[in-house]
């Protein structure tokens, strides 16, 4: 429903600002061009997207998720103290974080949801649950394959040269987001 409203608002805004700026013919042309550009974008992305989904499947089978989980365990215990007592929760949470890290969105969500169900109290989010969701909305990803696919589709010579910037940015955004959640957890009354 939300997207239907956004779509309606976008067409209204376009119509109004075309009337104001007198760019009616450009707007009419854009409607035809845009639809074609959508197909073009999908085709340029197709190769890289498929290749990296393949690599993701191999990563999962190779046990890289478990290795990363062991690496991240101390951090996990700090942010989610309940994982020290609850082994199943610990497994789901570290699976969720590692799958996100490797860009395996389909594997990450069910694990995260299962962890969320263990972390809730009635219908209220606990502090640890809020942290879990902030961590999931802040995306720490080793290789942002979709973006790299778009870049290479647009003719970029080294589509992965954005990696250092992506790592610094997502680490800081996730780190500060979780820090903010921890601070808010102290002062927020449920």
């Amino acid at each position: 429903m939300l997207m239907s409203w956004i779509w309606a608002i976008i067409s209204a805004i376009s119509l109004c600002s075309a009337l104001i700026t007198g760019s009616g013919s450009a707007l009419a042309g854009a409607i035809v061009q845009g639809a074609g550009a959508g197909v073009e974008l999908a085709i340029t992305m197709a190769g890289s997207l498929c290749l990296w989904s393949g690599v993701g499947a191999v990563m999962e089978a190779a046990g890289i998720t478990d290795m990363l989980g062991r690496l991240f365990r101390p951090l996990l215990h700090t942010v989610f103290p309940s994982t020290k007592q609850d082994a199943a929760l610990s497994r789901d949470l570290s699976g969720n974080i590692c799958a996100n890290f490797l860009g395996l969105g389909n594997a990450a969500t069910p694990l995260g949801v299962r962890a969320a169900q263990r972390l809730k109290r009635g219908d209220t989010a606990t502090n640890e649950l809020c942290r879990l969701i902030v961590l999931n909305t802040a995306s720490i990803q080793l290789i942002p394959t979709n973006v790299a696919a778009v870049r290479s589709g647009l003719g970029c010579q080294s589509p992965f040269d954005i990696l250092p910037a992506v790592w610094i940015t997502s680490l800081l955004s996730a780190g500060l987001g979780v820090t903010a959640a921890c601070l808010l957890g102290r002062i927020w009354k449920s």
């Binding site: 969500t109 995260g112 949801v113 969320a116 169900q117 972390l119 809730k120 219908d123 209220t124 989010a125 649950l129 809020c130 879990l132 969701i133 902030v134 999931n136 909305t137 802040a138 955004s173 996730a174 500060l176 987001g177 979780v178 903010a180 959640a181 808010l184 957890g185 927020w188 449920s190």
Partner: peptide, 22 residues
């Protein structure tokens, strides 16, 4: 997705913290 699947109504400070991260 998360709050829907876990049946949470009271989301507390999740939205402001997540938007701050964004």
């Amino acid at each position: 997705v998360y709050f829907g699947a876990a049946g949470i109504r009271n989301t507390r400070y999740t939205v402001p913290a997540a938007l701050f991260a964004d």
